[in-house]
């Protein structure tokens, strides 16, 4: 295990990782009454940026308008703070297990440039899909399943089912 930590290849046992993640999620519900998330922080940032650059446009929009109110700044939302935590927590784990390194990870069969472009496109689709589904793998699927929400199970099956098919379409990118 020590050797694995030095080489950066130590990972938690997946079932232990799952139980710990489940306990973090459960604590989140027990303390705050809601679940974890990720894409919501991106949304809050975009809403904040647009309402700063073009305030009238943001107020008149049926979408941005949903998340703007007089008393609450869009940036001042729970998920933005949570994501600051996610970044620092992941950094700590990377530090502890020797994985801090700038790199582009990709299959030897493709170039870094191709990987970067696919990552960008994947992120773009995730951005669109998460707004439509009102949450991503964390906020809609995982947190939803944790409280038995029907939508959580539906979104989970849609994400993983589609990804399973399309992973084979893009097989060369991965293996």
């Amino acid at each position: 295990m020590n050797k694995n930590i030095k080489s950066g290849s130590f990972y938690l046992n997946p079932y232990l990782g799952g139980v710990l993640l489940g306990l973090v999620l459960m604590s989140t519900f027990y303390i705050t009454g809601r679940g974890l998330g990720a894409s919501g922080a991106v949304k809050s940032t975009v809403v904040e940026a647009v309402s700063t650059v073009a305030p009238a446009h943001a107020v008149n929009s049926n979408y941005y308008g949903k998340f703007l109110s007089d008393d609450k700044h869009p940036m001042n939302t729970w998920l933005v703070f949570e994501v600051i935590g996610v970044l620092s927590g992941a950094f700590l784990s990377g530090l502890l297990f020797n994985r801090l390194k700038f790199k582009v990870e990709h299959s030897p069969k493709i170039t870094s440039k191709r990987r970067i472009l696919f990552a960008l496109s994947g992120g773009l689709l995730f951005g669109i899909g998460s707004q439509l589904a009102k949450g991503c793998t964390s906020g809609a699927a995982l947190s939803g399943m944790g409280v038995l929400a029907l939508g959580g199970f539906i979104t989970m099956m849609a994400i993983f089912g589609t990804a399973f098919i399309f992973a084979w379409v893009f097989k060369k990118n991965w293996i």
Binding site: V86, L125, I154, F166
Partner: peptide, 25 residues
């Protein structure tokens, strides 16, 4: 929208290899 959004995210997942939370990590 849960289904359609999920399908769009699934395609993004297979192309990008991350979801939002894991991309932050």
């Amino acid at each position: 929208s849960a289904i359609v959004g999920g399908v769009v995210m699934g395609i993004g997942f297979s192309m990008g290899g991350y979801c939002p939370g894991t991309s932050f990590a």
